[in-house]
């Protein structure tokens, strides 16, 4: 009995942590050093090369671009406000980063600065080169001793949970909350990490690629007035509301999310699914909605429009996000995205 309670308490704690990861709403304010010449991170996407029609722009090979940009002579100091409201200044690029965040690992590798990452958490699986990076804990626990042994000059965290421990151990810790909504700001994140790592040009190229491809998807979709009703099943009828990254993508794709009154991720009532009758279902591999007899009468099931799409990449606001958007757009509108 007691043990069961302990397990339940532990699970509740776990769940609140998971919820915290998914729902951290704090906005990061990015301050600019007076001398810095570049535009601020609150950037209005105004792509320079918007394809008028046809195929979505081809991804740029950023690693090649990055290698041609080595030897940047001048490092512009970066000043920003961290997730705890403290000013944080970089006067030189961090050389030994423990990056506790999937998106940041993706971004740094993509701009050719992955060599700066010396540690990360267990769940980082992308890019392939990141598999060589030392693991120093899961997303729920952190091994302070093994981080200390790596002698990092920067520990980056996406949640404040381990901040005190790490700072107490004398480490330099930057905490910026993981992005749980506002996926378009991914371009700003890319630019920020480019400046921190001292490679703003490669970051600019990657950010522009993101913005250009996003604008391409948007421009194709201007011909769509109102898309079909959609239900996203993360498994067990858990579904994202409009205030999540994937909820925003559904909206971008002009899809009418039947869970428009859900906030964050919630387990939605099966009765509500039947009543709102989705025309499209986008399901993870955890979902069995298409084999459940109770849902056989849904339009999406009868029309055979159940698409499989894993939780990633649309839960990690990194370099794969735009690819995830394009893949989903092609699945749902094959005629518009040939």
């Amino acid at each position: 009995m007691k043990n069961r309670l302990l397990v339940v308490v532990a699970l509740a704690a776990l769940m609140s942590l998971v919820a915290g990861l998914a729902c951290g709403q704090a906005e990061v304010e990015l301050a600019q050093t007076p001398a810095a010449p570049e535009p601020t991170a609150t950037h209005v996407p105004e792509p320079t090369a918007t394809p008028e029609s046809g195929p979505i722009a081809v991804p740029t090979d950023t690693s090649e671009a990055a290698s041609s940009l080595t030897g940047d002579p001048v490092y512009e100091p970066v000043t920003l406000i961290d997730g705890a409201g403290q000013e944080f200044v970089f006067t030189e690029p961090p050389e030994r980063i423990v990056a506790y965040d999937s998106a940041v690992v993706e971004i740094l590798f993509a701009i050719g600065e992955g060599h700066r990452i010396i540690g990360t958490h267990d769940f980082v699986e992308f890019p392939a080169e990141a598999s060589e990076v030392t693991r120093v804990g899961s997303a729920f626990e952190i091994n302070v001793e093994s981080i200390l042994a790596l002698e990092p000059d920067l520990v980056f965290l996406f949640s404040p949970g381990f901040m005190d421990d790490l700072q107490g151990a004398g480490l330099r810790v930057l905490f910026l909350p993981s992005r749980s909504s506002g996926f378009e700001d991914t371009a700003a994140d890319i630019r920020l990490w480019g400046r921190i790592a001292g490679n703003p040009d490669a970051a600019e190229e990657l950010a522009l690629d993101f913005e250009t491809r996003l604008a391409a998807v948007k421009s194709v979709l201007t011909s769509v007035d109102a898309g079909p009703r959609v239900f996203r099943d993360e498994g067990g009828l858990w579904t994202p509301g409009p205030d999540t990254l994937i909820g925003e993508v559904l909206e971008l794709l002009k899809l009418d999310n039947i869970a428009s009154d859900v906030s964050g991720f919630e387990q939605i009532s099966p009765e509500v699914i039947v009543e709102r009758d989705p025309e499209i279902i986008i399901a993870t591999d955890f979902s069995t909605i298409d084999t459940d007899a109770a849902f056989a009468s849904l339009t999406a099931i009868k029309d055979g429009r159940v698409f499989r799409m894993p939780g990633e990449p649309l839960s990690v606001p990194g370099t794969r996000f735009i690819q995830g958007i394009e893949d989903l757009a092609r699945q749902i509108y094959p005629e518009l995205f040939p």
Binding site: V8, L11, L14, M15, V18, L21, F123, A139, F140, E234, G235, G236, L237, W238, F265, Q267, S269, P270, T284, F286, D292, G311, S315
Partner: peptide, 17 residues
């Protein structure tokens, strides 16, 4: 991976399914 929501729902019990 932290995508444990369906398992957590099961562990906490329910009749949704």
């Amino acid at each position: 991976d932290p995508s444990l929501r369906p398992l957590l729902s099961w562990l906490l019990g329910g009749f949704s399914g």
